[in-house]
């Protein structure tokens, strides 16, 4: 099986801890369901990610150095 995380199009995905998540949500003043979504069967998702978790994605951005985005894992 190919390790997709090695592909240059795939940014780094990490599962966000609950307390970090609280910080993010309060910073933006949103609910976790307001976040963009990622499917549970997404090949780039870390194995330990479960539905309801939020993954932190660090992209190499075209407009700035690095961009951090979050996605909620959905079914």
């Amino acid at each position: 099986m190919v390790d997709v995380s090695q592909h240059e199009l795939v940014p780094e995905h990490t599962v966000l801890e609950e307390d970090e998540l609280e910080e993010v949500l309060s910073e933006y003043d949103i609910d976790r369901t307001d976040l963009p979504k990622i499917k549970r069967n997404d090949p780039a998702l870390p194995d330990e990610a479960e539905v309801g978790n939020v993954v932190k994605i660090v992209r190499d951005s075209r407009t700035t150095d690095q961009a951090v985005v979050y996605r909620l894992v959905v079914e």
Binding site: V10, H13, I38, D42, P43, A44, R59
Partner: peptide
Amino acid sequence: NLGIEAARE
């Protein structure tokens, strides 16, 4: 094959 983030890219 590579996920939604790669698709966006």
